[in-house]
Computed example of a mutant assay.
Amino acid sequence: MTVTAVPSPRRVLADAVPGARVRDVLLVVAGAGLVAGIGQLAIPLPFTPVPLTLGTFAVLFVGAALGPARAAAAMVLFLLAGVLGAPVFADGESGWALASFGYAVGYLPAAVLLGYLARRGADRSVFRTALAAVAATAVIYVPGVLWLMGYTGAWFGEALALGVVPFLIGDAVKAVAAALLLPGAWRLLGERR
């Protein structure tokens, strides 16, 4: 019988912060606040009901920096706050009756995916971070497009034209920015592998 070793999870950036439970709570609240705050930088586009925001960039960073469990908690806190009336969604919106709500829902699995990949070292190199960021962004698009279809009555092709195509270049730029920022943060901490 052969026994294969299961690789141990690696540290994520948040693990470099001293403390334990108090640290984790503060990081979760800060992660939700970062996504809410940066998500307010929104540009309404006249040809789509979905605004252009930096919220997805914040989700990439929060997912990689906090790891899957803390990132999930941060995104659940963000979503609950928004659904319960806090103005945390783009343009200070709240509630679930928004064309862009599906994208906010997609933040949760995207942050968890990037956190999972970061735990396996995907945030240590530019190339792997870029691939992880693209995968996480694609995860955001799935519930975003499905929600947009239901909210607007658009068919699939229309929803892609309204909720994906206008954002591809911006999301590619965000993936490149994450690919430069995250490995750079590890270099500053003196850890590469």
Rank of each mutant, 00 (worst) to 15 (best):
L79Y: 06
A81S: 15
G82T: 07
L84N: 10
L84R: 08
G85F: 05
P87Y: 11
F89A: 06
A90V: 00
D91I: 14
G92K: 04
E93H: 15
S94Y: 05
W96S: 15
A97Q: 14
L98I: 08
S100R: 03
Y103L: 08
A104K: 12
Y107P: 00
Y107K: 04
Y107A: 06
L108P: 12
L108R: 04
L108Q: 07
L108F: 06
P109E: 05
A111I: 05
V112W: 01
L114W: 15
L114H: 13
G115N: 11
A118D: 05
R120Y: 08
G121V: 11
G121T: 15
A122Q: 00
D123K: 00
S125A: 13
V126A: 06
T129G: 09
L131R: 09
L131C: 15
L131D: 03
A132K: 07
A133M: 01
A133T: 13
V134G: 04
A135C: 14
A135T: 10
A135R: 02
A136Q: 09
V139M: 07
Y141S: 05
P143A: 14
G144C: 02
V145H: 04
V145S: 05
V145L: 14
V145C: 09
L146H: 10
W147D: 03
L148H: 03
M149Y: 11
G150K: 13
G150P: 08
Y151D: 11
Y151H: 15
T152W: 05
G153I: 11
G153N: 09
A154R: 02
W155K: 13
G157F: 10
E158L: 08
E158F: 02
L160M: 13
A161I: 00
A161T: 10
L162Y: 02
G163D: 03
V164F: 13
V164W: 04
V165Y: 11
V165N: 07
F167N: 05
I169N: 00
I169F: 13
I169L: 14
G170Q: 04
D171G: 09
D171A: 12
A172H: 02
V173Y: 00
V176K: 04
V176D: 07
A179T: 02
A179Q: 00
L180N: 06
L181S: 14
L181D: 01
L182E: 01
P183V: 13
P183R: 08
P183E: 06
P183N: 07
W186H: 09
W186V: 09
